[in-house]
Simulated assay, not measured.
Amino acid sequence: MIRVRVATVCGTDIRIFRGRKTMGVRYPSILGHEFAGDIVDTGGRAEFAVGDRVGLCPAIPCGQCHRCKRGAENLCAEGMNFGYEIDGGFAEYVRVPAKAVDAGNVRKLPATMTFGEAALVEPLSCVLNGQEQVNLGFADVVVIVGAGPIGLLHVLLAKLRGAMRILVSDPNANRREAALKFGADVVIDPTSEDVAHRVRAETDGRGADVVICAIGVPALARQATDLAAHGGRVSLFAGFSKGDMSEMDINAIHYNQITVTGAFGLSRRNFDDAFDMVASGRLNVAQLITDTFPLEETARAFEVAESGSAIKVAIENA
């Protein structure tokens, strides 16, 4: 049993709350899949002690299905996830199934790692999975569409992975400023500039090696192929609402040999890698948290997160 200390609000939490995402969600359910806390009951597990500060990988794959056996446990259809099928972190306490403990989903925090940082390991894990799908690496020119918390995590990680140049498009001036702070080289206001034209101008007419769609707006999926170079890779990273559809330029995909891929969730390997990055100080994720609310003001926290005035909203259980 974990006493939750910090849980952060994800865009998926808002979509579930608003009824725009229903697949895989048990109703009624306590939301929250990004959280950390301390152990109040070990359940007899000798490897843990009451008071241990821990982070938690929220995905519990079955380990037996075809997808799990082929190394795609993030796509497991038989597994469980905190905040979806299992009550999540927007609560005082969370019960952790023995299966999750056995699988190594619970990680002790080093003394230097805060609960807020530990809560942000989950979204960073998803971002890591997304960048692996498009093989983002050294010397790539990267365009990130959307500078919300996920887009900013993409900036941080792309820089760490050796991207040569990072361009970010977002209509929100505060978020464009944050993108520069997080390491973007160029920011673009799509309300006053032609994004494709600006990307071509910044890349000698070539386009981006990697385009990451970090906001769930269907029209932006179509735009992403316009921003990619010949042989470029496009990640439709953000989740879209149920029923959303988008047109794609199939000739551009075919003749320019563009790879388009999705990226869903995280594996335990992603979680462990992201955890170690944060624990070692290689990535400063704490700077994402701009607003904090007590547990009893969770509804207000959701409002602020949905408004776009904050970057990352945290809920504290003191």
Rank of each mutant, 00 (worst) to 15 (best):
A274E: 09
L180C: 12
D209H: 14
L160Q: 15
D38P: 00
F237S: 01
R45T: 06
E306L: 15
R198S: 07
V278H: 00
V211M: 06
A310K: 13
A314I: 13
V127N: 11
R175Y: 05
K312T: 08
G63S: 04
H33W: 07
A310P: 05
G205Y: 07
A91I: 04
H66M: 08
A46S: 15
V101Y: 12
E73A: 10
C76S: 08
G281C: 01
D249A: 11
T225R: 00
R176P: 02
G148Y: 01
C76I: 11
I86N: 00
N81W: 07
G205N: 05
E73M: 10
E34A: 13
E78R: 12
G55P: 01
H197G: 08
T22Q: 10
V195C: 04
G55I: 04
V211L: 10
R200D: 02
I60T: 03
R95Y: 15
I166Q: 09
V106M: 12
Q64A: 13
I150R: 03
D140N: 15
N74V: 09
A201Q: 12
F271S: 07
V187I: 11
G207T: 02
G88V: 10
E78A: 14
G19I: 00
G207E: 02
L124K: 02
T290F: 10
A214Y: 02
I144S: 12
R175W: 04
G37K: 09
I16A: 10
V94T: 02
V143I: 08
N81R: 12
A208Y: 10
R161M: 14
E34H: 11
V106S: 13
V134P: 11
A179Q: 08
A36M: 03
I166N: 13
